[in-house]
């Protein structure tokens, strides 16, 4: 379970303040697949970063009783100047996994071949997505945080994600920020609309998507 209690986040820069989230309450149950809907800048990524422990809330608390992946998105999690293999090694070390297992899974899932010997900064966003998913799947989290990135992959990647994440690991919890209403309708059982700092949870995904589309 993940519980956000009265979570607020405000960014300050050079005397200016920007309130992104304001008193967000949210409960995520084990096995939920939650879509985060909201316009650009509404605070979807911010909420995902707070849940992932990347940033700290300005006030409020986030409690969790399951292991949560790092946010799988366009940025973060990797060291650009290191190769794909070196990043895998680093992640195996800090998550205390066998590098050989991780390496085998990454090679198989990403199909990046010799590219894994190149620095990650030379990767396209699709390639980064493959690497990020491969590493987080190899580590096996209870809850996956997915920030947009699921859309960047090609057909082959989508097929693999579907098989590995949505079928083999169908029991896992997932929080997915996406603008793609088709994906959301298909994959999610609950939806949260973030608008003007507030988060409203809906159990009816179709209704939530319609509400979001009307925003």
């Amino acid at each position: 379970m993940i519980i956000c209690r009265n979570v607020s986040k405000e960014y300050r820069h050079a005397g200016q303040r920007k309130q992104v989230l304001q008193g967000v309450n949210l409960t995520v149950n084990r096995g939920d697949r939650i879509a985060l809907l909201g316009r650009n800048g509404a605070g979807k990524s911010t909420l995902i970063k707070l849940i992932g422990g990347v940033e700290m809330p300005t006030s409020g608390r986030i409690e969790h009783s399951m292991s949560i992946s790092w946010p799988l998105g366009f940025a973060g999690g990797f060291q650009g100047s290191l190769t794909g293999y070196d990043n895998a090694r680093f992640i195996a070390r800090i998550y205390q996994r066998q590098y050989a297992d991780i390496r085998a899974f990454v090679e198989d899932f990403t199909e990046l071949g010799a590219q894994l010997r190149m620095p990650v900064k030379t990767y396209s966003s699709g390639m980064r997505a493959r690497l990020a998913f491969a590493l987080s799947l190899a580590i096996e989290f209870d809850c996956y945080l997915i920030d947009e990135i699921i859309l960047v992959g090609d057909q082959n990647f989508h097929r693999k994600c579907r098989a590995e994440l949505f079928e083999k690991r169908a029991d896992r919890t997932m929080i997915l920020a996406s603008h793609d209403t088709g994906t959301v309708r298909e994959l999610c059982n609950r939806a949260v609309i973030i608008d003007q700092g507030q988060a409203v949870a809906y159990d009816d995904v179709d209704f939530a998507v319609d509400t979001y589309t009307a925003l």
Binding site: G52, G53, V54, I68, W70, P71, A75, G76, G77, F78, Q79, G80, I91, I94, Y95
Partner: peptide
Amino acid sequence: NSSLLYHRQI
């Protein structure tokens, strides 16, 4: 090093 803060044990 901020990109490494994605891993909560760091």
